[in-house]
């Protein structure tokens, strides 16, 4: 049951990203809700779960994007795995620490995306990638993490996402 709820949560996040969240752009970017959820989940549940849900959320984004199917899946899977590796060392109860990790994870995901696109033959100037996407997005995701992590943590530990 928690898995089904989590799946619904990810699908709603993808739907919001492709519709309503476009009206909430700040500095030209919209929040990457799927990445934020992957980071939250990986911090609480570890690398295996982080990678799995990173893949699920990412592939859903890829299907709606239409280009480079697998790009978001790979990036989010890697990010989820890497964040999850710190599961036992991070202080999960601290919203500020998790927000900081979200910020770093967004930068990591941005760099991996950039390198993969380069490998696939799409050149974007590094300055544009950093200034127009990676940095503003990392700050936006950090802000969203500060606002919503506490609630998610309660869901994951004592609420409807807690293991039965």
């Amino acid at each position: 049951m928690p898995a089904l709820i989590l799946f619904t949560l990810f699908m709603v996040a993808v739907l919001l990203e492709s519709t309503i969240l476009d009206y909430a752009r700040v500095a030209g970017v919209k929040v990457d809700l799927v990445l934020v959820l992957v980071v939250f989940h990986a911090i609480v549940r570890g690398p295996r779960e982080g990678a799995l849900w990173g893949f699920i959320g990412g592939i859903a984004q890829d299907i709606l994007t239409g280009s480079y199917i697998g790009l978001n899946a790979l990036v989010k899977m890697l990010t989820g795995y890497c964040v999850g590796l710190g599961e036992s060392t991070f202080y999960k109860d601290s919203t500020v620490i998790v927000a900081g990790i979200t910020w770093l994870a967004t930068i990591f995901a941005g760099i991996v995306t950039y390198v993969l696109l380069l490998t696939l033959g799409l050149f974007i100037s590094p300055a544009d990638a950093v200034a127009r996407v990676i940095l503003p997005l990392s700050v936006y995701n950090l802000a969203v993490a500060l606002l919503f992590y506490r609630r998610f943590y309660v869901w994951e530990t004592r609420g409807f996402l807690a293991p039965r």
Partner: peptide, 11 residues
């Protein structure tokens, strides 16, 4: 009816 869910592309 929808936009690219990410921030890298414009569709």
């Amino acid at each position: 009816i929808a936009r690219d869910p990410g921030n890298w592309f414009g569709t």
